[in-house]
């Protein structure tokens, strides 16, 4: 069982550079061929400062900022029990290659389900760019199965 003492825990902010090669690799992995996601020259020609990060990218910054194994270790849990329950996004501004995004992550709730055989760990995450502008907020529900 995950201790509820972790509710309210805030991880130290981590700043992650958004690399062009990473965005190209991600586009390949997702089968995305749109040129603003894959071709830096086309992105510039479209008036963008660099490749556009796709809508799911904040989740990747969240993982970059906090390795899953380190997260499990804080909770006293193991990856074998973990499933992804929900991922919710709010968007305020785009993220581009070349940006530096600061990720702030906080555990906001731990919920017991089915007499504790299932636990939800909720984290809320804020993403701020190098200009100090909040670009996105996400809410992640990590599901743990205790057998």
């Amino acid at each position: 069982m995950i201790d509820k003492k972790h509710i309210g825990y805030e991880f130290l902010p981590v700043t992650v550079p958004v690399e062009e090669g990473r965005l190209k690799f991600l586009a390949k992995a997702l089968g995305e061929t749109g040129d603003i996601y894959t071709n830096p020259d086309a992105a510039k020609a479209a008036g963008l400062p660099g490749l556009l990060a796709p809508p799911t990218f904040p989740f990747m910054l969240e993982i970059d900022a906090l390795d899953l194994v380190a997260f499990m270790s804080l909770l006293g849990e193991s990856l074998e029990k973990l499933l992804h329950g929900e991922e919710n996004f709010k968007y305020f501004a785009p993220i581009y290659a070349g940006d530096k995004i600061t990720v702030c992550k906080k555990i906001t709730d731990i919920i017991d389900k089915k007499e504790g055989t299932l636990q939800f760990v909720i984290s809320e995450n804020t993403f701020t760019n190098q200009a100090g502008e909040i670009v996105a907020e996400t809410r992640t529900n990590y599901v743990f199965h205790h057998k």
Binding site: R22, F25, L26, K28, A29, M60, I63, L68, L79
Partner: peptide, 10 residues
């Protein structure tokens, strides 16, 4: 590919 690109190395 997705494991490497996303950073989700589970």
């Amino acid at each position: 590919l997705y494991c490497g690109a996303s950073g989700d190395h589970n």
